[in-house]
Amino acid sequence: MLTMALKVFDLSCEHDHVFEGWFSSRDSFQDQLAQGLVRCPVCHSDQITRRVSAPHLNVSHLRAGSAPRAEPAARSESVPQGRAAVAAPSGDQLARLQAEVLRQIRRIVRQTDDVGSRFADEARRMHNGEIEERPIRGQASLQECRDLVDEGISIMPIPDILDDDRLQ
């Protein structure tokens, strides 16, 4: 089994959308950023900055010679009455969970009708009751998106990573 330590950085774009980026190293992050490969998942901006984040320190080896670790039964006493203790998922479990979430989101995206550059017109026609509502996706300019929002039409950008058609 191959395991790789990943650097998890808190990132944001110039519109203050905050998101995480996972990289094999700081240099990998810098290289991808320089190539324009790091983009905001909300607005697709490539103007990305690293935010200050708390580091994860693995200090379990420092406790090896000190006081013995509390047994699970002892820890459960600190859990409020009527509540169950919850264990955090392991790294492998978390990776599987994230992969499953991405699969489900991609499945949902595939079930939408790709209307291409007609997105703004189709969304507006549905909003106005001219055509039956259905889940759609497509492309729209920033101004078209702003106009739709101003008209009270809910839209959401779909990052390329979630749209299999745009990855080809």
Rank of each mutant, 00 (worst) to 15 (best):
A88S: 10
A88W: 11
A88E: 09
A88C: 09
A88I: 14
P89F: 02
P89T: 05
S90H: 07
S90D: 12
S90M: 00
G91Q: 12
Q93V: 05
Q93P: 06
Q93F: 03
Q93C: 07
Q93S: 11
Q93T: 12
L94R: 12
L94P: 06
L94A: 15
L94V: 08
R96L: 14
L97C: 10
L97Y: 11
L97R: 11
L97N: 12
Q98C: 08
A99S: 14
A99H: 10
A99I: 06
V101A: 12
V101Q: 09
L102C: 11
L102D: 14
L102Y: 06
L102G: 08
R103H: 13
R103T: 13
Q104V: 08
I105G: 07
I105T: 15
R106P: 02
R106N: 02
R106F: 03
R107K: 13
R107H: 14
R107G: 12
V109W: 11
V109R: 10
V109T: 09
V109S: 04
Q111T: 07
Q111F: 05
T112Q: 01
T112N: 00
D113T: 10
D113R: 01
D114P: 03
D114E: 05
D114A: 05
D114Q: 01
V115E: 01
V115W: 02
V115Y: 04
V115C: 04
G116R: 03
G116H: 02
G116W: 03
S117I: 09
S117K: 14
R118H: 11
R118A: 10
F119H: 05
F119M: 05
F119N: 01
F119L: 09
A120E: 06
A120L: 04
A120P: 03
D121Q: 13
D121H: 08
A123S: 00
A123N: 01
R124D: 13
R124P: 07
R124V: 04
R125Y: 05
M126F: 01
M126N: 10
M126Y: 03
H127V: 02
N128T: 10
N128G: 11
N128S: 13
G129D: 05
E130F: 04
E130K: 12
I131G: 00
I131W: 03
E132S: 13
E133T: 11
R134L: 00
R134V: 01
R134A: 02
P135T: 06
P135A: 11
P135F: 07
I136R: 02
R137T: 07
R137W: 04
R137D: 08
R137M: 07
R137H: 10
R137K: 13
G138C: 05
Q139D: 02
Q139K: 08
A140P: 06
A140H: 05
A140Y: 02
S141L: 03
L142G: 13
L142D: 15
Q143E: 14
E144M: 03
E144I: 00
C145S: 09
C145G: 14
C145F: 05
R146E: 15
D147L: 10
D147I: 07
L148W: 08
L148H: 09
L148M: 15
